[in-house]
Structures are given as structure tokens and as C-alpha cells.
């Protein structure tokens, strides 16, 4: 099976289901070799640059949906209270992000989909950020109508994030208030409107290894510009609060497997890497297929200091992707 993985270096064509499954099931002894191959695939098809992004929550908590991992659902007894970020704070967040050298700033809202208030707050926020900071603006506002897709496109939203979260076959165990297919529909509309598609998920939601492989292949079919990989950080009050954190080796197997399934995609380390992999995990991931990071804090939890990540990139001689290179 190592041969199939090595072939990806030359062909740039991602592994099939069996190939991905073999990586996810590899022994501890084989894992470093798969990570090395995944790294070579990334260097060959994406290059040494790393895309750095910051994210912020424009509207936190009180979401009507029931994603079982999410502390922002209003349906669970989570301690996270509903709150809106004001525009000056949003601009401050964009400035903090740009100061790290990041090229991408993603504005996120905990909603099923945007209402008028959110659309207008976003438009005002985007205008205010553009006056103050030079950075690509991405958004993550849940499921969209065609009209909303058109309006985001007119606002020059560079990339739209909407995660499928997990394998299609596992999704009903994780979310009951909407379907995987509804999420897929939004992604298609975003793609057709010419915005970059960002779609990933969370590993460790109780899915089987087979379902993890299924998910990688479903993402391969979608072919998004970016895939953010999150690892479950079990949140108090949510149905998954007692779910164990993913084994660090399994998390690294997944990093290698997703890179080998998606040779040319931006593969981003997102939430949960600190708690799942510790400080060393960031290095292992960046040398195992990851070529993008979220720096700084997340939406409701904190990350490690951006300086630590930037110093690591420097040490690994991986240049931070510049803004001009993304245009």
C-alpha cells in the first residue's frame, strides 16, 4: 500500500477509498513513512508556502441547530451565551489577524443560515475592515439561499466556509435539524458563483475509521479549495461532552490520509489540534501534509500564541503565503 501512496507524488491524483483506509489503519511503525510521503505530496503539488488565517465569531451562541459537538447550539445547556460582536471589535480582530502576516480573515456566525440582520451586519463589517486592513475576507454563515450567495459574491467574499463535518453516513448521528445534502447544496451554489469553497469537518465525532475514509473521498468528490481539519474538543453541555479526544497517532494518520486523498488542496489545521496533539503535533502535521493553519484563538476556545506557530514555520523554512500570491 505504500506504493499506492508514493504514486500520488508523481501523479497528483488522490488515493481511492481503499488507499485512504490503508493509511488510516497503518501501524505505528508505518506512520512516519506515510507522513513523509504526504509531506512530499504537499511540497510537490502545493509548494512550501503555508496559508495563515485568523477567524472570529460575529454572532456567537444561540444557534437553532443541534450539531452534537457544538457549544453554540441553543438547544443544549452549554455555558456559551449568545452575543454579537460590534463592528469596531470586528475590525480590531481583522487587524490582529493581519498583524500575524495572515492573508485570510474568516467571519463566522452561529446560525442555520443568515437573516437580514446578519447580512447587513456582515456588509457593514466587510466595508469597515476594507477601510482599515488589507486582507482577504472569508465568511461562514451556514446554509445559504441563491440570493444570499449572489450577495456574498457581490461583496467580494473571497472564500466561503461550510463544513460537511463528517461522512454522509455518520451525519444523521451528529446533526438532526438539517441534512448533509442541504449542506452540499450550499457548497454547490457557492462554487457556481465563483467563490472559493472551504469545506472540511471534525474528526473524532464517533465515526468509524471506514467513515473517516468515506468522508475523505466525499471531500475528494467535492474538490474544495480548502479543507479545514478539526479534531473534537469535547464541550461541556453538548451531547458529545464525554466523547474521548482522538488518539494523537490517529489524528496524524488522518492528516496523512486526507493529504493523500487531496494532493492539491489547502489542508488546514483548525480547532482542537492543541488538545489532541499537544505542541509537537503542529510540527508533525506541517511535516505530514498540512499547509495551512488557523493562528490565534478560535471561536469560543483559545489557541496557542500566533508567535509560536510563526516561529515554527520559520524554523521549518516554510514561508507564509503572501497576499499577492493569493489574488
Amino acid at each position: 500500500m505504500l506504493a499506492a501512496a508514493k504514486a500520488v507524488i508523481d501523479t497528483g491524483v488522490g488515493l481511492d477509498l481503499d488507499g485512504v483506509l490503508a493509511v488510516l489503519r497503518c501501524s505505528d511503525e508505518e506512520l512516519p513513512e506515510y507522513l513523509a510521503i504526504a509531506h512530499e505530496v504537499r511540497m510537490t503539488w502545493c509548494g512550501p508556502e503555508v496559508e495563515v488565517e485568523g477567524i472570529v465569531s460575529l454572532k456567537t451562541g444561540g444557534c437553532p441547530e443541534d450539531c452534537h459537538f457544538c457549544s453554540q447550539s441553543g438547544l443544549f445547556t452549554s455555558p456559551v451565551r449568545a452575543v454579537w460582536l460590534d463592528i469596531p471589535s470586528l475590525v480590531e480582530a481583522a487587524k490582529q489577524t493581519a498583524a500575524t502576516g495572515a492573508t485570510e480573515f474568516c467571519i463566522v456566525a452561529a446560525v442555520r443560515g443568515p437573516d437580514e440582520r446578519l447580512m447587513s451586519q456582515l456588509a457593514d463589517g466587510v466595508a469597515a475592515i476594507r477601510e482599515a486592513v488589507d486582507i482577504n475576507i472569508a465568511a461562514s454563515l451556514g446554509m445559504l439561499t441563491q440570493d444570499q450567495v449572489d450577495r456574498l459574491s457581490a461583496l467580494d467574499i473571497h472564500r466561503y466556509n461550510h463544513n460537511l463535518e463528517t461522512a454522509r453516513s455518520h451525519f444523521p448521528q451528529v446533526v438532526t435539524t438539517h441534512t448533509w445534502e442541504e449542506r452540499w447544496d450550499t457548497l454547490r451554489m457557492v462554487r457556481d458563483a465563483g467563490m472559493e469553497v472551504c469545506c472540511g469537518g471534525i474528526l473524532g465525532l464517533g465515526e468509524t475509521v471506514e467513515q473517516r475514509a468515506e468522508f475523505a473521498i466525499q471531500l475528494q468528490e467535492l474538490d474544495p479549495h480548502e479543507v479545514p481539519l478539526n479534531f473534537l474538543n469535547p464541550r461541556p453541555g453538548t451531547p458529545l461532552s464525554d466523547q474521548p479526544v482522538l488518539d494523537p497517532k490517529d489524528a496524524l494518520r488522518a492528516v496523512a490520509a486526507f493529504r493523500l486523498a487531496l494532493p492539491r488542496t489547502l489542508l488546514r489545521y483548525a480547532g482542537g489540534r492543541e488538545i489532541t496533539l499537544g505542541d509537537l503535533g503542529t510540527r508533525d502535521g506541517l511535516l505530514g501534509g498540512v499547509n495551512a493553519v488557523i493562528v490565534g484563538n478560535y471561536l469560543t476556545t483559545l489557541g496557542r500564541s500566533p508567535d509560536q506557530d510563526l516561529a515554527l514555520l520559520d524554523e521549518l523554512r516554510m514561508p507564509v503565503k503572501a497576499l499577492s500570491a493569493t489574488l
Binding site: P79, V83, T301
Partner: peptide, 19 residues
């Protein structure tokens, strides 16, 4: 998430640097 003095749930905002 909770006020250490009165136990009320607090309104918390997380920014890329700080909260």
C-alpha cells in the same frame, strides 16, 4: 464562562488575540 463572584453566565467574546 461563569462570573467567579456571582456565578452568572458571562457574555464572552473571543478575538484572535485575547478575549
Amino acid at each position: 464562562r461563569f462570573c467567579p463572584r456571582c456565578r452568572r453566565r458571562m457574555k464572552v467574546q473571543v478575538l484572535p488575540k485575547g478575549w
